[in-house]
Amino acid sequence: MKELPNVEVQMVDYTWKLPFLQQLQLTHNSDIFMSIHGSGLTHLLFLPDWAAVFEIYNCDDSNCYWDLARLRGVKYFTWQKQELLWSDSVGRHPTRPEEEHKKFTNYGFDKTEFIRIVKQMIDYVRRNPKFVAKQRKLRRLQKDKENLKTEL
């Protein structure tokens, strides 16, 4: 993803080590938010209005974060081509190890398909009228700032 033009990629580990206010700030300043299924995806509530969220794999809980994204008003993406997603082992529930559990499995995925979905998300964000308006406002503010420096 780092090779995509005009895209800044940041990997964030939302744990207790990262103060909650910093988590909110990072999320609110993200146009695209992606994660595998898990409680960290609830941060999508703090995304900007034009954002897109990518639940890389929904672990057979297909409506959970889709519904949250819909209620928040951000665009939801998830993996569609299941044959391009695989697990390297059987996941086990942490408190009931005798139970297989998709939410506790390590997954791999096809990089080409992943990038295709990310490009769709980038296109969605860049075409979103709210994003376009925000970018215009930021450019005007930058231009005003430069003009003020020139006048001084």
Rank of each mutant, 00 (worst) to 15 (best):
S30P: 01
D49Y: 01
Y65K: 04
D61N: 14
M1L: 14
I117H: 03
W66A: 12
T95D: 11
D49L: 04
F54R: 00
W79S: 06
Q22C: 05
E151C: 07
K75C: 11
V90N: 11
K17E: 14
L141M: 13
T112F: 06
V9A: 07
A52M: 02
E98C: 02
D123G: 07
T150N: 15
G73W: 06
K149D: 11
Y124N: 13
P94E: 10
L152D: 10
G40T: 11
Y76E: 08
R139C: 05
Q25P: 00
R96C: 02
P129T: 10
K149I: 15
T112V: 13
F77E: 05
L84Y: 10
T95I: 07
F77P: 03
Q80C: 09
E55N: 11
Y65T: 06
R116S: 12
D49I: 04
I122S: 07
K134I: 00
R72F: 05
Q80M: 11
S62R: 09
H37Q: 07
I115F: 10
S39P: 00
Y57M: 08
E100V: 05
L44E: 08
D61V: 09
T78V: 06
A133T: 08
K81Y: 11
G40S: 13
E99P: 00
P5F: 12
V90R: 09
P48V: 02
D13P: 00
L84P: 01
L41R: 02
S39F: 03
D123W: 08
P129N: 09
R126T: 15
P48F: 01
N63E: 15
K137L: 13
V12H: 04
L4V: 14
L41C: 04
N29D: 15
K111Q: 08
L4R: 12
Q25A: 14
N147Y: 07
E55A: 03
H43P: 01
G38D: 09
F109T: 04
K2P: 06
V53G: 02
E100N: 14
L68P: 01
N63Y: 12
W50A: 02
W86N: 05
E151H: 10
